[in-house]
Design a binder for these strands. Structure first.
Length: 667
RNA sequence: GCGCCUGUAGCUCAGCUGGAUAGAGCGCUAGCCUCCGAAGCUAGAGGUCGCAGGUUCGAACCCUGCCAGGCGCACCA
């Protein structure tokens, strides 16, 4: 509704500018700072003043005259130095809102929706439990997927599993060499219901890392373990497979608690064994994107020269600290013949665009409660019926900002292969890290160095075992919510209370992770995250719950909401009455949900959607306190108010759904 | 050293791609439950938008230079 109206006005003004001044203008429409000033504002007159060498106010009058003719516009005013303020025909607008039910594919923009978009997110190394940093990735990725789907796009969600990397190797080395376990021992550990295997690995990983740190001579063990895993050999590979698969199952369970689901799990082991890399390697060599280094510290490696590196290379760098001197090449294949992450990722990106000329085999890995099947890449041709994965027209890679450099190199690899446009359509959806506030560290008994204490936040480190495990946090949030629910609803059945507490906890967590923009480091503070007041998920949920309570109470009293009694005349009289302004503002804000979606997608900022939902909840809370609906004497007015509440309910529920937040039955 | 990001109220953050009197939440102060649930509402105090120049009708936003902080710059991912 909002976007359609907006584009109608844009079109009219653009046509007018074309006719009147033979100018091709971009008509920007904004919302005036105060509702009394109008519903939409044009600043075009001020922009054109110089070009037309005429006073902006005069130009504004002409634009206003054109805007007045647009259907749905009630009146237009020129204000200030040349603003064109548009007031919409409220009743007509409301009628059209009533005619359209809010649906997932309703955003009425002219974006090409036939394209298939691939979103890759989560990508946790399968060697330990997930922590809060991973939750931010998944919450952002999942919300972005929901936003894209709301616009009608076809989206495929991939969760890349690096099951052959160093991180898994470290845990495997820990099991086999530190703990002297056999594959059977590890299998028993996994089968033991009293042990959280992912938590066990969390600790083991920290221990192994410490030992490698202390004694560099043991790094040979890491190297050997890694190689055995890559080649799929013996006990090492068996244990790696067991560990990675089991941990992935834990990760999926954790993410499902947040309502996050995936379509396919492409695994690194298949990238290697199905020779994806060999194919990419051939391409890279053919196009001379990489070359075999014969001298220097990278002798024996296949390397890629970086963009603009030639001049840098020409300069002689004789500084002592060579690490700081900046390298101009990036190793793709190590001297021992193994491939680096960048190399594998180039192959993976090529596959995503359908440029590799190869495909995975697939097997079902898991069936979600809603019936959706999650597939995993596989060596052997598995079950029939797997969808056609990959072949995206656009790819979003949700990866934290610290990997920007590597992402750039991957994109450069694509360009070096001649895939310029694919590189442009492979987007690094970058976000800042989640760190811990010093206060939270203290609360958790984490000892801080004097250096760390002076910092505004402390970086999470899986390697050091420093961080908050995702499930621990969720459990704590549920506990906190449960206490509140118990005290408010002592008579509600236990099962119901558990469900309510769970939804509140998840709502709080997802909102907390989403309300910051991507460039903001979240200095995670336990107290803030556990709060259910103010700008939080529960505040927004509460608004919907109260809206629904009105309808529940209504039917308890034997009343009935009858949509057919909302006539155009009633809408007109209600919205144009002296107090109609406040009704209109609520209604208008509801209609702008699609703008929030557009904004969030265009800027890759799910936070915009979170902010919008909070704003809408706030507007309703205010409305709620000003109007006692159920005791309203005038039956027409009561119906109108009920209608407003129902519009709010559907829109806010939908907004929350896009954030992956459910509405509890009560609060 | 080079690259990217950030600096807005006491704290944590928004700020619709350059527009009108810079906004929220938390915290603080003062009110509001006989009334659809107070996880709520209302009001108040609190700002040199890091600093200095520049661009223009107009700058928190764009450009330049400083200052401060963060993150990258591996044959780890």
């Amino acid at each position: 509704m909002y976007l359609a109206t907006q584009s109608r006005i844009q079109q009219a003004v653009r046509d007018f500018a074309q006719r009147q001044w033979q100018l091709d203008v971009n008509v920007l429409i904004s919302v005036p700072p105060q509702p009394a000033m109008g519903d939409m504002a044009l600043v075009l007159a001020m922009e054109l003043a110089r070009k037309l060498r005429r006073p902006p106010k005069q130009i504004a009058e002409e634009i206003a005259a054109a805007a007045r003719l647009v259907p749905g516009v009630a009146r237009v005013e020129v204000a200030g130095t040349g603003y064109v303020n548009i007031f919409l025909d409220r009743a007509a607008y409301a009628s059209r809102m009533m005619a359209t039910t809010i649906a997932k594919t309703e955003v009425s923009t002219a974006v090409p929706l036939a394209e298939k978009i691939i979103v890759e997110h989560t990508n946790i190394n399968p060697n330990k439990a997930a922590h809060i940093g991973h939750l931010r990735n998944a919450a952002l990725g999942d919300t972005f997927v929901r936003l894209l789907r709301a616009r009608g796009a076809q989206v495929e969600v991939q969760n890349y599993i690096d099951n052959t990397g160093v991180q898994v190797a470290d845990v495997v080395a820990g099991f086999l060499h530190m703990e002297k376990k056999t594959p059977e021992d590890v299998a028993r550990l996994i089968a033991d219901p009293t042990i959280r295997f992912d938590y066990y690995c969390w600790d083991l990983y920290a221990r192994v890392s410490k030992i490698f740190e202390e004694d560099k001579s043991r790094l040979e063990l890491r190297r050997r373990t890694l190689q055995e895993i890559e080649h799929g050999e013996g006990d090492t590979a068996r244990v790696a497979e067991m560990v990675a698969t089991e941990i992935v199952r834990y990760h999926l369970r954790t993410m499902l608690r947040l309502g996050v689901e995936y379509d396919v799990l492409p695994r690194e082991s298949e990238i290697l064994h199905l020779r994806f890399w060999d194919q990419a390697f051939e391409l890279l060599k053919q196009r001379e994107a990489i070359y075999l280094e014969s001298e220097g510290k990278n002798a024996g490696c296949w390397v890629m020269r970086q963009k603009g590196a030639a001049e840098t290379a020409a300069k002689e760098i004789d500084s002592a600290d060579a690490t700081a001197a900046g390298d101009d090449t990036k190793v793709i294949v190590r001297s021992n013949g193994t491939v680096t992450y960048v190399g594998k990722d180039i192959a993976y990106q090529l596959w995503k665009f359908g440029l590799l000329g190869r495909d995975f085999h697939y097997q079902p890995f898991h069936t979600y409660p809603d019936g959706r099947v999650l597939w995993v890449s596989s060596m052997t041709s598995g079950q029939a019926g797997a969808p056609a994965f990959g072949q995206g027209q656009k790819v979003y890679n949700v990866i934290d900002v610290r990997q920007s450099y590597l992402q750039d190199i991957v994109a450069q690899g694509l360009r070096a292969l001649g895939y310029q446009s694919e590189a442009d359509r492979s987007i690094h959806f970058s976000y800042e890290m989640v760190a811990l506030s010093p206060r939270t560290c203290e609360l958790m008994g984490i000892e801080l160095s004097a250096e760390d204490k002076a910092r505004p936040f402390v970086e999470v480190s899986g390697r050091k075992g420093l961080g908050i495990k995702a499930d621990d946090l969720i459990d704590q949030l549920i506990g906190e919510a449960r206490r509140e629910v118990d005290s408010r609803h002592p008579d509600t059945p236990d099962e119901k209370r558990a469900e309510i507490a769970q939804k509140i906890a998840i709502g709080a967590l997802r909102y907390f992770l989403l309300k910051f923009t991507c460039t903001s480091v979240i200095a995670f503070d336990l107290k803030d995250a556990l709060s259910f007041d103010g700008e939080t998920g529960p505040y927004v949920q509460y608004a919907v719950v109260r809206a629904r309570n009105i309808f529940r109470k209504l039917s308890d009293e034997g009343g009935r909401f009858d949509l057919s009694r909302i006539t155009p005349e009633l809408l007109a009289s209600s919205l144009n009455s002296p107090e109609g302004d406040s009704f209109w503002q609520l209604l208008y804000l509801c209609s702008r949900w699609e703008f929030a979606v557009e904004q969030a997608v265009a800027t890759s900022e799910p936070a915009a959607m979170a902010k919008y939902s909070f704003q809408l909840a706030q507007a309703f809370s205010n409305f709620y306190h000003h109007h006692r609906i159920l005791i309203e004497q005038d039956p027409d007015r009561k119906m109108f108010l009920l209608w407003l509440v129902s519009v709010l309910d559907s829109h806010l529920t939908h907004a929350l759904d896009l954030l992956g937040i459910e509405v509890p039955a009560a609060m």
